[in-house]
């Protein structure tokens, strides 16, 4: 039972080993990387390929660690007591399970995705140390200890907005997803467009990597943007020949809006165009 990538997801060798290590060493795998390199997708693919249930916890700036465990819904209990309902007597009826609890409760090993952990408060990762280490926590209202039936495979993604505490990092394995090189990218594009004509693919990739090399771009286009762009090119019926002699420093290809997401970046391109492609002049 190992994760080998899938027909929708091309995994590099180091990523495969990291995933395997995370499964066998039973440690959370912390994934970082440029936006659009498929961090979140990884957990979904692992779950699909290994045929395991996936539990996703999207972290926001207001998310508290407790919410991943459980919440006590005092308001509905209060309301139900007004209505004189039977179930009021049982506090258990008002404990709302969080994502971690659900993953712990799963009858088979599950995949738990904690997405964008860096969005939360700076203390947040520390509040989860024990839970992730021992795979158990206490529910005070029910006075019981919740233990994972099967240790879930935990994937944590981070966009590097905040540094994570050392104690937390020490419990994780770390993998940095590198931006795919041209060869990997071809394979990735192939997955999305199995019947893409080779000429268009080659030219689109050439221009795409040329874009990425421009110095000073605020947001370099990533895989998902490339996919969108190719989609638009195909809709236009572009064959690839039109792009063949194009140089991003001299002219701006069609549907640039799919690749460039920032006004200032567009200004940089326009600037290149005006000075006629002499990139040293910038």
């Amino acid at each position: 039972m190992a994760f080998e990538g899938s027909k929708n997801y091309i995994a590099s060798k180091d990523l495969k080993i990291s995933v395997k290590a995370a499964m066998h060493l039973e440690k959370p795998l912390l994934i970082k990387g440029e936006p659009g390199t498929g961090k979140t997708l990884l957990a979904e693919e692992i779950a699909t390929v290994l045929n395991k249930p996936l539990y996703t916890w999207h972290i926001k700036s207001t998310t508290k660690a407790q919410q991943g465990l459980y919440e006590y819904d005092a308001v509905s209990r209060l309301r139900d007591s007004q209505l004189g309902l039977e179930k009021v007597a049982q506090i258990g009826n008002y404990i709302v399970k969080g994502v971690i609890w659900k993953a712990f409760d799963s009858e088979e090993q599950s995949v738990l995705l904690i997405d964008e952990i860096d969005k939360a408060d700076i203390e947040f990762p520390n509040d989860l140390l024990l839970e992730l280490d021992r795979m158990e926590f206490d529910c005070y209202e029910l006075q019981k200890r919740v233990k994972a039936k099967h240790r879930p495979i935990i994937i944590i993604t981070s966009n590097n907005e905040k540094e994570l505490p050392d104690a937390f990092l020490r419990r994780c394995l770390f993998h940095y997803i590198q931006f795919p090189d041209k060869q990997q990218m071809e394979a990735i594009v192939q997955v999305h467009f199995p019947n893409l004509n080779q000429r268009l693919m080659q030219e689109a990739l050439r221009l795409f990597y040329q874009f990425r090399e421009i110095q000073g771009l605020k947001k370099r286009p990533s895989t998902s943007e490339l996919i969108d762009w190719i989609k638009l090119l195909i809709m236009d019926g572009t064959e690839g020949d039109e792009l063949s002699n194009m140089d991003v420093f001299k002219e701006i290809p069609q549907h640039i809006e799919a690749l460039i997401k920032n006004e200032k970046d567009l200004d940089i391109l326009n600037h290149f165009k005006q000075i006629g492609g002499n990139s040293n002049a910038y």
């Binding site: 060798k13 180091d14 080993i17 990291s18 395997k20 290590a21 995370a22 066998h24 060493l25 795998l29 912390l30 970082k32 590097n160 050392d166 990092l169 020490r170 994780c172 394995l173 770390f174 993998h175 940095y176």
Partner: peptide, 26 residues
């Protein structure tokens, strides 16, 4: 990890495994 034979006996694999374990920051 070595004991559990997560990786084969190739040094590339060892590189990837030790990197995932030792390094915590890109």
């Amino acid at each position: 990890g070595l004991e559990k034979k997560i990786i084969g006996q190739s040094i590339d694999d060892f590189y990837y495994l030790s990197r995932a374990i030792y390094v915590k920051n890109e």
